[in-house]
Amino acid sequence: MVRRAARCISAFRRASEILRSGPHHAAALTALLSWASPAASGDAAPMRVASMNLCTDQLAMLIAQQGQLHSVSYLASDPRSSAMADKAAGYVENHGLAEEIYLMQPDLVIAGQYSTQATTAMLRRLGIPVEVFPPATSLEDVRARILRMGDILHRQVQARELVAEFDARLGHLRQQVTQRPEAVLYYANGYTSGDSTLAGQILLAAGFENATTRAGYGAGARLPLEVLVMTIPDIVITSRPYPGASRSEAMLDHPAVRAFRTGRAGATMTDHDWVCGTPYVLRAIEELAETRRAITGETR
């Protein structure tokens, strides 16, 4: 109780500082209003938020008001995995370590479900509230994550706008699919994604059938090379190799895969649009739908 009151006071003090400083008074006013109104969590709007997961980083950057988000993970500024690398440069970088995050003195930490448990437990012990986001496994999850981020940051209006835009674009993309070619997603180490994963849902939304569904794969699993070859999909969509060599990725270049891919359409995933449940999955769907039209000869 005491801690909560202290946080209210500090939020109020910060808001009034912002008010005094002038140019941001609109943002501060929103902060004050949302603090005054009974919000979902019943707390004041957090004003110094640290996110330590690539996906929550991006959701927070999309939704937070200016000055509200203090720090994002170092992955957010890696253009390979983050769709918002440019924007992430404007925030303090963290590496998901309890010590560095505590020293930032955030009033809220947002973590992913697979963030190190030891770190989030330590932060909680130190009295910092931690919100944990499970990864999205469907497009419906993407909407839910956006809305939840809106609640947590007391930015429900922005979140709802984002969801409305998401729904409109997705609805548009889902129209006019007449033929559904079969595709297989194939990553380093021979992993594949079935229908119950976000990547699988992106594939379906772009108008493909997942050929591994026939072979009985639902979630992410290792797809043996021979099963891939025997499945005979219309297209194999592979991940883009990282710099530096690895055995795991070398198998995408296995002679069987190469022989199998000649004469077939191929595509590569742009990881940063695929990995996180953010509105950027729409960009992945759009790109993939373009590939599908090229295969089937459909026109828009």
Partner: peptide
């Protein structure tokens, strides 16, 4: 030390 994120998992191999 490899820049490739998969490399470290290959220790097992």
């Amino acid at each position: 030390l490899s820049p490739n994120p998969f490399a470290a998992n290959e220790i097992v191999f």
